[in-house]
């Protein structure tokens, strides 16, 4: 009997599904989102803008937390509390 490897299966599946999302045509994306595609795009743009500002703030204050753990979007980068162990 073959042993079941759910973690491996999940990893393969998520990889395949992510490729599906990337491979979706513009038409398919627009069909699925309709007019909401513009608001979704705006939402993601805002998030990118916030991440960029976050990065620039880090540069200005001399904080370079490479290796620091992830934080909630918009949460300030903290030098000590979120350090990866």
């Amino acid at each position: 009997m073959t042993r079941w490897h759910p973690r491996l299966e999940l990893a393969r599946l998520l990889e395949a599904l992510s490729e599906d999302i990337i491979a979706a045509t513009d038409e398919e994306v627009r069909q699925m989102h309709g007019r909401a595609v513009a608001s979704t795009a705006r939402e993601v743009k805002q998030l990118i803008k916030a991440a960029r500002a976050d990065r620039e703030r880090g540069e200005m204050t001399g904080l370079d937390e490479r290796g620091a753990g992830p934080r909630l979007a918009g949460a300030p980068r903290r030098p000590s509390h979120h350090q990866r162990h």
């Binding site: 993601v44 998030l47 991440a51 960029r52 990065r55 370079d64 490479r66 934080r71 979007a73």
Partner: peptide
């Protein structure tokens, strides 16, 4: 949003 935010930061900071 947190995952995407973190990904963008890590790409922009060159890590």
């Amino acid at each position: 949003a947190d995952v995407l935010h973190e990904a963008i930061v890590r790409v922009l900071d060159g890590s």
